[in-house]
């Protein structure tokens, strides 16, 4: 079952195409990474999902149903550019935003109290936003995003501007929500976060989907059949059998590529027979960062001017 289905979505602005027949699915209960360089069309796509703007063509299904006027209440959206009413009291502000998401007065109060306790914010109840530090404001913003118990959480670069402590706290909360069944769509260009957090990703560039799979599958797809081996004998004291190509050798470890038609086990057998002790052996999987850069630079023909809509 998918929480979100994007089908052939097209969005054209005056002089450029922000989304060009983009299609992908987000599994219910997954943490999904929406990746892409600046100006790729991530924000446009998010704005279409959140109902801020409309697609020119294509369909979007949220939990199986085409987008309708009730759906904004089921989505929690934290934009990259955070914003709150500076002169408003924290509690008033959160009550207001939760009620605008269709919550009743009592439910909103209950939910906000819960989050205040959870994040240790009880003392801020009657403070104005402008009296809080930036980190504190981020926490308030997070509560504003989740207070109405959304089914789908959309976080646009959620960790920018957070200190490591708060970033960890936020990560924890995202995991906890995910365990409770909330699906999370996570837009970023920071690959290490995606590798750590996401189950599935889609890579988008210039409005087109370049890649859409689980993180594991993506890394497998881009693996180059490389392994790292560590033995008790220095690399220069023995050589690789045929079908194995040296990439790098350094002291007791060596990196090699397995040629087509060969298996890594052949090498292991060879080592065992030669009486060389294997200390570690693992496959080298490419980082998402490399894949990202590789795909995007491949894709980038004569570069076009970036646009303000991103």
């Amino acid at each position: 079952m998918n929480i979100l289905s994007i089908k052939e979505v097209v969005k054209v602005y005056q002089n450029y195409t922000a989304l060009d027949h983009a299609s992908f699915e987000v599994r219910k209960g997954s943490i999904f990474g929406l990746l892409g360089p600046n100006g790729a069309g991530k924000t446009t796509l998010i704005r279409i999902i959140t109902g801020i703007t409309r697609a020119d063509e294509g369909h979007i299904l949220l939990d199986g149903a085409p987008l309708n006027s009730h759906h904004p209440n089921e989505i929690g959206y934290m934009p990259e550019e955070r914003g709150l009413y500076k002169k408003m009291k924290v509690a008033d502000q959160l009550m207001y935003l939760a009620q605008l998401k269709g919550m009743s007065n009592e439910d909103a109060k209950k939910s906000i109290r819960f989050w205040f306790q959870r994040l240790g914010m009880e003392e801020w109840w009657n403070k104005k936003i402008e009296e809080l530090s930036k980190g504190m404001q981020q926490k308030v913003q997070f509560v504003a995003t989740v207070a109405h118990n959304p089914k789908l959480l959309i976080l646009d670069e959620p960790f920018t501007g957070l200190d490591p402590l708060n970033a960890d706290l936020l990560k924890e909360e995202i995991y906890k929500l995910n365990q409770k069944g909330v699906s999370i769509l996570f837009s970023t260009h920071r690959m290490e976060q995606v590798e750590e957090i996401c189950n599935d990703i889609v890579l988008i560039n210039k409005g087109k989907i370049l890649l859409n799979d689980s993180v594991k599958a993506v890394r497998n797809q881009f693996k180059q059949n490389q392994f790292v081996l560590q033995t008790d004998r220095a690399a220069n004291e023995w050589s690789l059998p045929s079908g194995f190509e040296e990439v790098e050798a350094d002291g007791y470890s060596r990196t090699f590529r397995v040629a087509a038609g060969h298996q890594s086990n052949e090498l292991l057998m060879h080592l065992i027979q030669s009486g060389i002790n294997i200390q570690s052996f693992h496959e080298v999987l490419p980082g998402l960062n490399e894949i990202f850069i590789k795909l995007v630079t491949q894709e980038t023909e004569p570069s076009q001017p970036q646009n303000h809509h991103s």
Partner: peptide, 15 residues
């Protein structure tokens, strides 16, 4: 003010 404080994007994702 709403535009400058960037609250507007949060608002119009609700209304």
């Amino acid at each position: 003010e709403e535009k400058i404080s960037r609250i507007v994007e949060v608002m119009i994702s609700s209304v």
